[in-house]
């Protein structure tokens, strides 16, 4: 298809995340209908899905990074057709990811090669080829509204709201219980 395997890995390939997610889906589907033919077709479409992809998923943004900053950096690979900021499902505030859509597939590939893994707003950002934005995908899928990774994150990330939210909530509860115990003690 693309000729022989290159002697150097290409940076414009879909990430392990995308491939594994699709493998998982394929596997589930296989379990459901166990039909070999449709599987073959499925594989075909998955490959095609990204063959002309013009959209990128961009991750590890700071919550405070603005659309204008993203435009400024990503325009270096070509004119941007559309930018969709990832939002917290409940607060509708940026939650650290976005979709950048270019006019051409080549621009998207170039972006993978030249911008993915470099810094924006002093954070190393991640890019991944994406089959295209669909309504609803702009929202975080985590329990508390943000991205899933921001639920249980154990490191303190100032640009992404400190500790993971689930951990923060747990600590908050812990503190409340302790305060309650203290109060209880005093009353006694």
């Amino acid at each position: 298809m693309r000729g022989p395997r290159p002697t150097v890995e290409r940076l414009d390939q879909p990430s392990a995340y995308f491939t594994s997610r699709n493998k998982r889906r394929r596997f589930e589907k296989e379990q459901r209908d166990g039909d070999d033919d449709s599987n073959m077709q499925n594989e075909q479409t998955e490959e095609d899905l990204l063959k002309n992809a013009t959209t990128l998923y961009v991750g590890n943004l700071s919550f405070y990074t603005t659309e204008e900053q993203i435009y400024e950096l990503f325009s270096k690979c070509g004119e941007i057709k559309r930018l969709v900021m990832g939002l917290d499902r409940f607060n509708k505030t940026p939650c650290g990811f976005c979709f950048v859509e270019y006019y051409t597939h080549q621009d998207a590939l170039d972006c993978m090669k030249y911008i993915g893994g470099t810094k924006l707003d002093e954070r190393v950002i991640r890019t991944d080829l994406d089959p295209g934005f669909t309504e609803g995908r702009q929202y975080g899928r985590g329990k508390s509204g943000g991205q899933v990774r921001d639920e249980y994150r154990e490191d303190y990330d100032e640009g992404r709201g400190g500790l993971g939210r689930a951990i923060q909530a747990a600590r908050m509860r812990e503190r409340e219980t302790r305060d309650y115990d203290d109060d209880y003690g005093r009353l006694r």
């Binding site: 270096k76 690979c77 070509g78 170039d110 090669k113 030249y114 911008i115 470099t118």
Partner: peptide, 12 residues
């Protein structure tokens, strides 16, 4: 040959 940002990224 390539977009300017490629050469930026090599230097980076």
């Amino acid at each position: 040959e390539h977009k300017l940002v490629f050469y930026h990224s090599v230097l980076t």
